[in-house]
């Protein structure tokens, strides 16, 4: 229930943010609704329901099992791996523009293969090399996906 209490407060904040934003956009009149009209009502509904959820979570008797706020991660190390994956994805998205698809994909795959469940170096390197080449052939040459060239543009 502890989780519910906090998550409902976050949604309350989201609702307030949407309502204020919509008011700034102008609601218009009923016969001529403005750009903020629909989102304002959506924001109101979110606020209302978030309040309901919050009150409900406060009223609920904390039973033995769920009373203590359980940590979001059961295993810190694995939680760290998840964050690392997110970071790798973001870095990959940025790097793709500069390094091009082939190099950045190779690095991305190698990093993940070494972190999620560490593979041997030979597996990680050869696997990433083969996979990035295969993706390049299938999507760039086969399906004409126009993947970023980056550094390789000069060729």
């Amino acid at each position: 229930m502890e989780r519910e209490k906090w998550s409902s407060l976050v949604w309350l904040g989201v609702g307030i943010f949407i309502c204020i934003g919509s008011l700034r956009l102008s609601l218009g009149e009923f016969h001529n609704p403005g750009p903020g009209f629909l989102s304002f009502f959506a924001g109101l509904v979110i606020m209302g329901l978030a309040l309901v959820l919050h009150v409900r979570s406060r009223k609920a008797r904390p039973d033995a099992k769920q009373g203590k706020s359980e940590p979001i991660w059961r295993d810190r190390q694995k939680g760290f791996k998840m964050i690392l994956t997110v970071a790798a994805l973001l870095a990959y998205a940025v790097a793709m523009n500069y390094l091009g698809f082939l190099i950045s994909t190779f690095l991305f795959l190698a990093v993940l293969l070494k972190t999620i469940e560490p593979q041997r170096w030979s597996v990680a390197l050869i696997g990433s090399l083969v996979a990035s080449a295969a993706f390049y052939i299938i999507f760039e040459i086969g399906l004409r996906s126009q993947l970023p060239k980056g550094l390789l543009q000069i060729f």
């Binding site: 998205a93 793709m96 991305f108 696997g127 999507f139 996906s145």
Partner: peptide, 27 residues
């Protein structure tokens, strides 16, 4: 899964990129 998951992520990235060819959508 340790080998499958990076590939699934890669499929997602390439799929999103292919629609509008921009990495902003990947982010």
């Amino acid at each position: 899964y340790a080998i499958l998951s990076p590939l699934i992520l890669l499929f997602c990235v390439v799929g999103v990129y292919s629609i509008n060819t921009t990495t902003d959508e990947v982010i």
